[in-house]
Simulated assay, not measured.
Amino acid sequence: MNELSEPVLVMSDDECWGRLATQEVGRIVTRIADRIDIFPVNYVVDDGSLLMRTAQGSKLFELTVNDEVLFEVDGHDDAHAWSVVVRGRAHALDTSAEVEHADSLGLRPWIPTLKRVYVRIVPESMSGRSFERGPEPDRYGVQPY
Rank of each mutant, 00 (worst) to 15 (best):
Glu100Ile: 09
Ala81Gly: 10
Pro109Cys: 09
Ala81Cys: 08
Glu100Trp: 08
Val84Thr: 05
His91Lys: 12
Ser83Asn: 08
Thr95Ser: 15
Gly106Arg: 02
Val84Trp: 04
Asp78Glu: 15
Asp94Pro: 00
Val73Asn: 04
Arg108Cys: 10
Asp77His: 09
Val99Asn: 07
Asp78Gln: 13
Thr95Trp: 10
Leu70Arg: 02
Asp77Ser: 14
Val73Gly: 04
Leu107Glu: 03
Gly75Val: 02
Leu93Tyr: 04
His80Met: 12
Asp74Tyr: 07
Leu107Cys: 00
Arg108Ala: 15
Asp94Tyr: 10
Ala92His: 09
His101Gly: 02
Ser104Thr: 12
Thr95Cys: 02
Ser104Ala: 14
Val69Arg: 01
Leu105Glu: 06
Glu72Ala: 08
Leu105Phe: 02
Ser104Lys: 03
Leu93Pro: 00
Thr95Asn: 06
Asp74Val: 06
Asp74Phe: 06
His76Trp: 13
Glu72Pro: 01
Val86Gln: 03
Asp77Ile: 11
Arg108Asn: 13
Glu72Arg: 05
Ala90Asp: 01
Asp78Trp: 10
Val69Lys: 02
Arg87Phe: 12
Val84His: 00
His80Thr: 15
Val84Arg: 06
Val99Lys: 13
Arg108Ser: 12
Leu105Arg: 13
Asp103Cys: 09
Val86Phe: 03
His76Leu: 12
Arg108Glu: 15
